[in-house]
């Protein structure tokens, strides 16, 4: 990550039982304005390693005075979310990347249907002011678990009125994806941010209804899942690295002092692609095509791992 800078945490709010919202202000000057749907990568130096997690910006895109992110405490105690929830205090400084966008709205759409699962609401929060400004036609469908992840329901319902559809899995009927997607006119685009299951449900329903895949856009907020430890060889230098169970390949490589271009750190943007010269791959990204996968000579090290005990990268 070349373009990083320091910010100060100026406010922390608990917005739901498992979600905290952080306000980040520039140490000096102003922050860079961003486009709707952008995220930043936050560095979290813990004792065992430096986590780098991507978080959507949910503040006003044109307001350079501060950024806001929301962090959900992940169920498995692994990862940066614990650090953000337990270590970071108001007044602390954090290193963040410049905003990048891999989930921008399609402005040629006639109507936007946003489907958010829990904390997946965050990228859409920066869509809304843009939609309002441009007079876009949209609906927001917000699925969450009562009290835990439904952080923004009240303020959204004030803002959006009947454009907002809330589904609290604890109290209200489940969202019927098929009803939600049928009876739509050409030019209606769907955006999903949430867990894999929700994305799959929408994709499957689209297929059943005959809706072209180009109408479906999604962002998965998958953090790299742990796996087996393995040995990683870097061909050019002959260096051997150990990738532990809790660590991604990208993290292990970075720890050794080598920089690899990356953006999403979630297997979707394609930035971090590396050539593999030996070893079997456990592909976990959503970027590579089937063909590339089966060729066995490229890997996305931010999420994917070795299927065996050793992997050799051509870097």
């Amino acid at each position: 990550m070349t373009d990083t800078f320091k910010v100060t945490v100026t406010d922390i709010q608990t917005v739901a039982s498992s979600i905290k919202e952080f306000t980040l202000s520039p140490v000096e000057g102003q922050l860079i304005p961003f486009s709707a749907g952008s995220h930043i990568v936050v560095e979290m130096p813990t004792e065992e390693k430096t986590y780098k997690n991507a978080y959507s910006l949910l503040s006003q895109p044109d307001d350079p005075s501060h950024y806001k992110i929301a962090v959900r405490l992940q169920d498995n105690s692994r990862g940066g979310s614990v650090y953000m929830h337990t270590q970071v205090k108001v007044g602390d400084s954090l290193t963040i990347s410049a905003p990048a966008n891999r989930f921008a709205p399609l402005w040629q759409a006639k109507k936007h249907i946003l489907i958010a699962g829990g904390i997946g609401i965050t990228p859409f929060l920066s869509y809304l002011p843009e939609f309002e400004r441009r007079g876009e036609d949209y609906e927001l469908h917000y699925l969450y678990r009562g009290g835990q992840t439904g952080a923004y329901c009240n303020e959204l319902s004030e803002q959006l009125g009947d454009r907002l559809f809330c589904y609290d899995s604890a109290t209200s009927p489940r969202c019927n994806i098929e009803n939600l997607m049928s009876q739509r006119a050409p030019g209606t685009h769907f955006y999903i941010c949430g867990p894999e299951k929700l994305i799959e449900a929408v994709m499957t329903t689209a297929k059943q209804l005959g809706i072209a895949a180009g109408y479906i856009h999604f962002e998965e907020f998958a953090a790299p899942k742990p796996g087996n430890a393995f040995e990683l060889e870097l061909k050019s230098s002959g260096r051997l690295l150990n990738v532990s169970e809790e660590e991604s390949m990208l993290e292990a490589i970075e720890k050794s002092g080598i920089e690899i271009p990356n953006l999403c750190r979630g297997g979707v943007c394609g930035q971090c692609v590396c050539r593999v010269s030996q070893g079997k791959i456990d592909h976990r990204d959503t970027f590579l095509t089937e063909q590339e996968r089966s060729s066995g000579d490229v890997i996305m090290p931010c999420v994917s791992r070795a299927a065996g005990e050793r992997l050799t990268l051509d870097i």
Binding site: S182, R184, P186
Partner: peptide, 10 residues
Amino acid sequence: LIGTLPLATS
């Protein structure tokens, strides 16, 4: 016509 067409039009 478009108002009467479904999204799944080819």
